[in-house]
Structure formats: structure tokens, C-alpha cells
């Protein structure tokens, strides 16, 4: 049996890889602005957890510099899962994802574009959640710059793994349970580093915050590299 011969010249996209990723990100942001339910769900989830934690463990325990950051990062991780899941749910409506995956470079662009868009959404969720924690728990912030840097690096380390796990479980019925199960073990270094970096910033320890922030940066880069390598196969 002979292999197929398509009697036309192979043509590829004239658009560069980074531009394709930005196009996907812009498409995502535009859809989010018109249908902000994913973002709203993430912010609401974060706000409810912040309120609950002070009710459950009491304000004195909740505002301890080792406790508040840990709860914050766990809450932000689950908010990221909620927001990312909603983003891919929209792709599955009318099989929109198939059109993108069939495009030249579509899988890579989809992953990179989702990363960019989700990072933007998570910055908003992290900002709102962080402000709520500071206000409701009456937290002192002696090192605000270090706190912002640690939070931003921690936020940027989340999307590569969360997007990868949601993509891996895209058409699996038990996705809601599988995503956290897959994501949590991999994200332990991020959660530990994020908690310690923010804790150090809240305790007035600049060198500690800087050191843990460096680990956050390394985790983010490692996760992104792993995602870029794995995601085309995962989506397929």
C-alpha cells in the first residue's frame, strides 16, 4: 500500500510562534472580559477561603506569619484550577479547541497563550485575595516590595503545571478530582517556597524572602520548560 501523496505544496503559517501565542492569549482575555465567570469564580473562591480560615482557626492563629501565607497559597492554587478549568470548558463548547489544535503550531500556541492569559487572571485573583487577607486579618507588612515580588513569582509558577494538568485530563470524566491530585504533588516546592517567601516578608526578613523567591523563580522556569516539552503530547 502506498503512502499518501498530497499533490500540493506544503505551506506553513506566516505567523511566528510568539505571535501565535499572543493571539491565543488575546483571544482568551477578550472572551474572559465578555464571560468573566472563571475570573469571578476564582476571586470568590479566594475571598470565601480567606474569610473561612479566620473563622475556623480563629483570627489570632490565622494571622500568624507561618499560617496566613500557607492558606493563601493553597487557596490560590485551587482558584487557579477553577479558573483554568473554566477556560478549557469554553474551548470544549462547540469543539473550539479542535480548530486551534488543527492549525499549524496550534498546540504550542494554545499552551503558551493559556499560560499568558491565566497568569494575568491569577495576578488579579492574587491581588484581591492578598488585599483581603491583609485587611481582614489585620496583617502588618514590613517588607511590601519583597511581598509583591514573592507573590508575583509564586503566581507565575502556578499556570504551567495547572494548565498542563487540565490539558492532560481534558476529556476525562473525573477531571475535577484528577487535576488537584496531579497538580498538588508537583507543586509542593512552589507551595513551600511561596509560603516561606511571603512568611519572611511578613516577618521582616529580607534575605529569607529573597532566597525563597529565588527558589520560586527556579520552580517557575522548570515548570514552564516541562510544560512546553510535555503539552503537545498531553493535548494529543
Amino acid at each position: 500500500m502506498s503512502d499518501v501523496t498530497i499533490g500540493v505544496a506544503r505551506r506553513s503559517s506566516n505567523t511566528s510562534g510568539p505571535k501565535r501565542a499572543w493571539l491565543v492569549a488575546a483571544r482568551e482575555v477578550r472572551a474572559d472580559l465578555r464571560q468573566p465567570d472563571g475570573l469571578i469564580a476564582g476571586v470568590t473562591f479566594m475571598a470565601v477561603l480567606v474569610l473561612l480560615e479566620s473563622l475556623i482557626v480563629g483570627p489570632q492563629t490565622a494571622r500568624q506569619s507561618a499560617v496566613a501565607p500557607a492558606l493563601y497559597w493553597v487557596a490560590l492554587l485551587f482558584a487557579a484550577i477553577v479558573t483554568t478549568t473554566r477556560s478549557f470548558d469554553r474551548e470544549l463548547e462547540d469543539d473550539a479547541i479542535d480548530a486551534v489544535l488543527a492549525l499549524p503550531g496550534g498546540a504550542d500556541a494554545l499552551y503558551a497563550g493559556k499560560l499568558i492569559a491565566l497568569a494575568g487572571s491569577l495576578v488579579v485573583v492574587a491581588l484581591v485575595g492578598g488585599l483581603l487577607e491583609v485587611v481582614f486579618l489585620d496583617l502588618a507588612v514590613p517588607l511590601p516590595l519583597q511581598l509583591v515580588v514573592a507573590t508575583l513569582l509564586g503566581v507565575l509558577a502556578l499556570p504551567p503545571i495547572v494548565v498542563l494538568d487540565v490539558a492532560l485530563t481534558l476529556r476525562v470524566r473525573a477531571r475535577a478530582a484528577l487535576v488537584p491530585i496531579l497538580a498538588l504533588p508537583v507543586l509542593v516546592p512552589q507551595l513551600v517556597a511561596g509560603t516561606n517567601a511571603v512568611s519572611a516578608a511578613l516577618s521582616g526578613d529580607p534575605s529569607g524572602s529573597l532566597g525563597w523567591s529565588g527558589l520560586l523563580l527556579a520552580a517557575g522556569l522548570a515548570y514552564t520548560a516541562a510544560g512546553i516539552i510535555l503539552v503537545p503530547t498531553a493535548i494529543e
Binding site: 503512502d3 498530497i6 505551506r11 483571544r27 465578555r34 462547540d94 473550539a96 479542535d98 480548530a99 499549524p104
Partner: peptide
Amino acid sequence: DAPDDVLYLGHRPQLLHGL
């Protein structure tokens, strides 16, 4: 063995909701 630049239109419209 097929070209990279495929345009696939499936059963469903494949248009992103929200746009």
C-alpha cells in the same frame, strides 16, 4: 503524511464562545 496547514471543520462550528 499530510500538510501542516490543515483547515479542519468538524460536526460542530468550533467557534470560541465569548467572541
